[in-house]
Nucleic acid binder design. Structure first.
Length: 620
RNA sequence: GGGCCGGUAGCUCAGCAUGGAUAGAGUGCUGGACUUCUAAUCCAGUGGUCAAGGGAUCGAAGCCCUUCUGGCCCGCCA
C-alpha cells in the first residue's frame, strides 16, 4: 500500500513540476486514516502556500487513483494528507502472505556478512542478570539482522587468561577450596558465589596474596605451565556451565574464541609492527608516558599499549581480536567442534593445535560487539583505530547498552543497605542476582499459574510451558526498553506476568490456538475477506501488515525493543478482537474469514516473537 | 577537571534519528465486564509546566546553546 501511494504521489508531483520532495509516508495515528503523508508541509515551503491548501489540492488530484488499495483520501486541516485503506483488498493480501515462511522478511542486508560478538562472560563465575541483558540483546540482534537479509556469524569471546581467573585459581591452590562443589550446586555458581567472593575478601586481610595472584597470571599466559593447564581445566568447566544457562535462554553461537589463544598466537606482535609502519602508534620519549608505546587518541588521553618495561597492556589483547574479527590479519587458528547445541546448530571453537578439519571464516567487513556502556571509552579507541587500520573499508561497531542495577529492596534482600537507592551489581562482593535462579523462580511461578488454568494437562506438558513462559518473561524484560536505559532489577516487580510482558503476548497466542482448535475446520484462504469490516478486525489486519516495517526499523537501528513493541501491539490488537468479535458463533463464510485472520495473527506473532527468541505455547 | 548516557503521568517507560494533528502505554488507584472462543483478558475513569531557561522556525517533547540534576567512565590494573 505504501508503494502504491508513493508511486501515485510521485506522478502528481511530476505533473505539478515539483521534484525532489523527500516526503514520508507512515502508518497514521489513531483516528487519522491508515497512512499519513507530510507532503503538503514540504511543498508549502517550495510553493509558499499554506500546507492545508496544498493538502486539499493533492488529495483532490489523488482521487483519480482511488480503487486500488486506497479507498479514500482526505486532507486534514492540519496539513496532513491521510489515506484510508480498502480493508477487504488489503486484508486479502496480508492474510494470504502471512502464511508464507518469509513473511516479514525485509531484505535491507542483501546477503551482507556481519560478525556479532556477545555474551563474553569471564569464565570464573555464573551468569547474573546483567550478563543476561548482554546475551539477550545480542541474540535478538542476530535474529533480527538475519530476518533483514544479513548473513551472521556469532562469536562468544572467553577471557580465560584474566585476573578474575587468577583469583579463583588462587582460591583452589592456596586457600584450600575443594574442586568439587557441594552436591546439587552448579560448578559456575560455586566458583562465583563461593571461591571468587571469598578469595577476593582475603585480599583485604592478606595483602601478600596479591603477589601470588600476579605470579599465577603470568604462568597462565605462558601456556605450557602446570598453572595454565589447571586454569584451562577450571575455565572450561565453568564455561560449559555458563553455556547451559545461555542455551536455556534459547541462545546459540557459531564459535568460541579464547583469549589465551589470542595471546599465544602472537598475533599482537604482527599487528604491532603494522601499527608502527602505519604510524598509528607512537613511542613517547618524554612526558608522563615516557618509554611507552601509545595510541594517539584525538581529543582524549593517549592510551598506553606497551609499558616502559616492554610488556603489553590488556588492550593489546583486544586489538588483535578486533582485527581478526574484521579479517585484517591472517587467521592463525584451526577449528574443532565444541559440541552440538540444543537447537541443532554445531558450536565450534578455535584451537592453535593444527588439524586437518575444514577451516572456518568468521571474519566480516562489519563487526558488531555487544558490550555494556561502561566500556565505551575503550571500545571507542578500538573503533577509531580499526577504522584507520582497515583504511575505512571495515566497520567496527560497539553496540552499547546500559547496565542492570539492583533496586534497593533487592539489594537489601542480598544483605546490603543502600539507603533507598539502586546499586550496581558486583561479582567480587557477591552482590548480584543469578540468572539460573531467576529462571527457576519464574518457572515455579508460571508453573503454578498454568496448572491453575489447565488442571487437566500432563505434568511434563505443564513444565514445558512453564519453561517457555519463564524464558520469555526474562528475555522480554531485558529488551523491552531502550538500550540506553538502565534496568533497575527488582526480584518481585520485574517478574510480573501481567500488562506489557511476554506472558500477555503469549496468552494472546494461546487464546488464538483455542479458537482454531475448537473451530474444527480447516481454513480456506480463498475467503470473503471483505466481510472483515469490524473495527477490531481491520485493526488486527493492519497491525499484522506492519511486521516488515518493524523488522526494517529494528535492523537499521540495531534496536530489539522495536520488535518487542511490535509484538505487544499485535497482542493488544488481537485481544481487542477476541473480546469484541465472536469467531465460533459466526455463519460459515464469516467464520472462515475470521479463522483465516486468526491464522494470520498466529503466524505473524510467531515470526515476530521468534526474532526476540520467544516461543509460542498453544496452551498456558 | 574532562568524556559518554539519562531526566516525559505517583512509579516504570514509548514517542526524539527524519520538527507538524488531540503527548501515548504499562503499572498504581476508582468503578464496571467471566452460565460465553481460557479474566495472564477487556472497558471506563484518574493522572502531564515533556527538568529549567534561551535561540533558530509559520510550528518544538523532538533541532541548537546554557544551566540544573541523576548514573557511568577517565591506571604503565584486567
Amino acid at each position: 500500500m505504501l508503494d502504491e501511494i508513493r508511486k501515485n504521489l510521485l506522478t502528481i508531483l511530476e505533473q505539478q513540476k515539483i521534484s525532489d520532495l523527500a516526503f514520508s509516508l507512515e502508518p497514521a495515528k489513531e483516528g487519522f486514516g491508515d497512512v499519513s503523508c507530510n507532503i503538503a508541509f514540504l511543498a508549502a515551503k517550495a510553493l509558499k502556500q499554506r500546507p492545508n491548501e496544498i493538502a486539499q489540492s493533492i488529495s483532490k488530484q489523488y482521487e483519480k487513483f482511488l480503487g486500488g488499495l486506497v479507498s479514500k483520501v482526505e486532507a486534514h486541516p492540519s496539513g496532513y494528507v491521510n489515506f484510508y485503506a480498502d480493508v477487504g483488498k488489503l486484508g486479502k493480501i496480508i492474510i494470504v502472505q502471512s502464511q508464507e515462511d518469509d513473511y516479514g522478511f525485509a531484505n535491507v542486508g542483501a546477503g551482507t556478512k556481519i560478525t556479532v560478538e556477545h555474551t563474553s562472560v569471564n569464565p570464573n563465575k555464573a551468569l547474573h542478570i546483567g550478563h543476561v541483558r548482554n546475551v539477550v540483546v545480542g541474540d535478538s540482534i542476530i535474529r533480527i539482522l538475519q530476518k533483514a537479509g544479513y548473513q551472521i556469524n556469532t562469536l562468544n569471546y572467553v577471557d580465560d587468561s584474566g585476573l578474575q581467573v587468577a583469583d579463583i585459581l588462587l582460591g583452589f591452590t592456596h586457600l584450600g577450596f575443594s574442586q568439587e562443589p557441594p552436591a546439587g550446586q552448579k560448578f559456575d555458581h560455586y566458583c562465583g558465589d563461593e571461591v571468587y567472593v571469598k578469595t577476593t575478601e582475603k585480599y583485604q586481610t592478606n595483602p601478600e596474596l596479591q603477589d601470588i595472584r600476579n605470579q599465577i597470571l603470568k604462568e597462565i599466559e605462558d601456556g605450557n605451565s602446570e598453572t595454565a593447564k589447571f586454569a584451562s581445566k577450571i575455565t572450561s568447566r565453568v564455561l560449559s556451565e555458563q553455556l547451559k544457562t545461555c542455551w536455556r535462554l534459547g541462545v546459540s553461537y557459531d564459535c568460541l574464541n579464547f583469549e589465551s589463544e589470542i595471546v599465544r598466537s602472537h598475533l599482537w606482535k604482527k599487528i604491532f609492527e603494522k601499527l608502527k609502519q602505519m604510524n598509528l602508534v607512537k613511542f613517547e620519549s618524554e612526558g608522563k608516558n615516557k618509554g611507552c608505546w601509545v595510541i594517539l587518541a584525538e581529543g582524549e588521553e593517549d592510551k598506553v599499549l606497551v609499558r616502559s618495561n616492554d610488556t603489553a597492556t590488556y588492550i593489546a589483547k583486544d586489538i588483535p581480536y578486533a582485527a581478526w574479527k574484521l579479517g585484517l590479519v591472517e587467521d592463525p587458528f584451526y577449528y574443532t567442534k565444541y559440541r552440538d547445541q540444543p537447537n541443532g546448530k554445531t558450536l565450534y571453537q578455535t584451537t592453535l593445535i593444527p588439524n586437518d578439519l575444514p577451516k572456518h571464516n568468521y571474519a566480516s567487513n562489519k563487526v558488531i560487539t555487544v558490550i555494556d556502556s561502561r566500556q565505551a571509552r575503550l571500545q571507542n579507541i578500538i573503533t577509531t583505530l580499526m577504522a584507520k587500520f582497515g583504511q575505512n573499508k571495515k566497520e567496527y561497531v560497539h553496540l552499547s547498552y546500559e547496565s542492570v542495577t539492583l533496586s534497593s529492596d533487592t539489594a537489601n534482600s542480598l544483605g546490603l543497605d543502600t539507603g533507598g537507592k539502586s546499586t550496581q551489581m558486583s561479582g567480587r562482593k557477591g552482590l548480584y542476582v543469578n540468572a539460573d535462579k531467576i529462571l527457576d523462580t519464574l518457572e515455579q511461578k508460571t508453573l503454578e499459574e498454568t496448572k491453575k488454568r489447565n488442571p487437566e494437562l500432563a505434568d511434563d506438558t505443564l513444565h514445558q510451558i512453564a519453561k517457555n513462559v519463564a524464558v520469555a518473561t526474562l528475555r522480554y524484560e531485558m529488551i523491552k526498553q531502550d538500550l540506553d536505559k538502565i534496568i533497575t532489577f527488582d526480584t518481585t516487580k520485574s517478574l510480573s506476568l501481567e500488562g506489557d510482558t511476554a506472558p500477555y503476548i503469549q496468552y494472546a497466542y494461546a487464546r488464538a490456538s483455542r479458537i482454531i482448535e475448537k473451530s474444527n475446520t480447516r481454513p480456506n484462504f480463498d475467503a470473503k475477506f471483505e466481510m472483515l469490516q469490524d473495527q477490531y478486525e481491520s485493526a488486527l489486519v493492519k497491525t499484522i501488515g506492519k511486521l516488515d516495517l518493524a523488522v526494517q526499523d529494528a535492523a537499521n537501528n540495531l534496536s530489539p525493543k522495536v520488535i518487542a513493541k511490535y509484538c505487544y501491539s499485535l497482542a493488544v490488537s488481537f485481544n481487542g478482537f477476541y473480546e469484541h468479535v465472536r469467531v465460533l458463533d459466526a455463519e460459515p463464510d464469516l467464520l472462515n474469514a475470521r479463522i483465516c485472520l486468526v491464522y494470520a495473527f498466529q503466524s505473524c506473532l510467531q515470526k515476530a516473537l521468534n526474532l526476540i527468541g520467544i516461543d509460542t505455547p498453544q496452551r498456558m
